[in-house]
Nucleic acid binder design. Structure first.
Lengths: 144, 144
DNA sequence: ATCATTCTTGATTAACTTACTCATATTAGA
DNA sequence: TCTAATATGAGTAAGTTAATCAAGAATGAT
């Protein structure tokens, strides 16, 4: 049930970008020093987020990274799915990346007790993270 | 956010023991074949659960494993903590195994946005798993 | 007592994942 | 064209997961 460093760093990097959103861009070394993230690892993370359409970048002098969407439209759930994969504790209860469990002894999957509990765990996690935006994150509390 | 095979196997093994609880004991090979679990790996899991005081065992002919407590008193949260460690997504929000995050740039930990969200995720997970007993698990739904 | 059966313990391992690092592009601005 | 920045891909050390193996110790049956 762990959040990887990759996701943690990713969230912290996006936090910095949220704080300056609309005002300026940030370069990787600025993000790295502000959040104590190893710079080369941070780079990979930023590029993954870029490929996923969450931020854009410019090279050369005056280059840097910016959020491409408004921080109110990006949820932590989206970010963690990009960097860590599905939120679900096991593949067979994932809604965004379902995978059937090969060795499950329950022919009728709906009867599997593991699937039953883990389904509710997944829903509880997703309910929080898919409604928690970068704005909520930056202000320290969820809106609504 | 993954549940390990170890915990999954552990839960499925305890399910079998719950089904025969009060009636008979089960040997490791019975559990292994009923739930398609590699037998030597299962053994490690059963012994960990034994050391944790959840089940007892007898050697020799007519040996086997039994639940030492009533299935209504054992929660999935307990089992997963034994086999996988804390439920919390990051150490700094664990209530049963707190660990401060060394590189966190927030001097005042209560101000850390990551800690804030992950705290509620932890609570949501624990709220489900710490109230879900082996009885609920075996019958496929939570009591209350 | 002895033997087969079953749990017990500890060591070992192959494959995978995590968290990086490094080298080498490529692009943009001065 | 020189320099500051991002881009890309390969490589790696350490740790975790999911087992496997071998040898020991307790129990019951004969």
């Amino acid at each position: 049930m762990k959040l990887s460093k990759k996701s943690e760093y990713g969230l912290r990097a996006l936090l910095e970008l949220t704080l300056v959103h609309g005002k300026s861009t940030l370069q990787r070394h600025q993000i790295a020093t502000r959040q104590h993230i190893p710079i080369e690892f941070l780079e990979q993370i930023l590029l993954a987020l870029k490929r996923a359409g969450i931020l854009s970048s410019r090279r050369g002098m005056k280059g840097g990274y910016t959020l491409i969407k408004s921080p109110g439209e990006i949820t932590l759930g989206q970010v963690i799915r990009i960097l860590d994969g599905p939120l679900a504790p096991i593949g067979c209860v994932s809604k965004t990346a379902y995978q059937k469990c090969g060795d499950c002894p329950y022919a009728d999957h709906a009867q599997c007790p593991v699937q039953h509990v883990m389904g509710s765990v997944r829903d509880a996690i997703a309910d929080i993270l898919d409604h928690y935006t970068l704005n909520d994150f930056a202000s320290g509390h969820r809106k609504e």
